[in-house]
């Protein structure tokens, strides 16, 4: 993997200069840029914000949104909210597992997809749904899965 250029993240720290409680927004923006939060990034954040490494890891591991592993090109979030569950989200999930050959939290070998479980996306009316990157796919049926995946 290519080395991460840490100084390229400086603009993020500058943006939050003087703000209180900036750890989480900073982690968000860095993850957006880098894709994940490996140790060297955590070290840089620790140094820049003066927050202990232990606390940074405590925070990263608490929030399911943060990851220390690189993600695939696309992230598939399978909604496991109530409405989706009631409308058969489990079938969708199983079909995805089957199609991609991975469990939730994992990334396909070709690095194309990372699959996660998400809580309600707030699109219950179209349950069951999945979200691929920022795009919601609703009113799903397991059979439609291959077709959708193939689009990516």
């Amino acid at each position: 993997m290519a080395a991460i250029k840490l100084s390229a993240l400086d603009h993020i720290f500058e943006k939050y200069e003087g703000k209180k409680g900036k750890l989480i927004p900073v982690l968000h923006e860095i993850q957006e840029e880098v894709g994940y939060l490996p140790v060297e990034v955590q070290r840089y954040v620790s140094e820049k914000l003066g927050v202990a490494m232990s606390k940074i890891y405590g925070v990263i591991s608490f929030y399911s949104f943060f990851t220390t592993e690189p993600k695939g090109e696309h992230t598939i979030g399978v909604c496991m909210g109530t409405a989706c569950y009631v409308k058969g989200a489990e079938d969708i999930l199983n079909r995805l597992k089957e199609e991609l050959g991975i469990e939730t939290g994992q990334t396909t070998a070709d690095n194309k997809f990372t699959m996660t479980m998400t809580r309600c996306l707030g699109t219950c009316s179209m349950a069951p749904v999945i979200m691929i990157d920022d795009q919601v796919h609703g009113n799903l049926e397991a059979e439609k899965i291959p077709e959708i995946i193939n689009k990516y």
Binding site: K19, K20, P25, H28, G58, Y63, R119
Partner: peptide, 28 residues
């Protein structure tokens, strides 16, 4: 006004956890 974005923890809807989260801590 400032917008703060959560990070995937339901418990952060609880007000004291939410405060901890805005403060940059684990949302307990």
């Amino acid at each position: 006004l400032e917008v703060r974005v959560g990070a995937g923890a339901f418990v952060c809807g609880e007000e004291t956890a939410l405060i901890a989260s805005i403060e940059g801590k684990r949302g307990q």
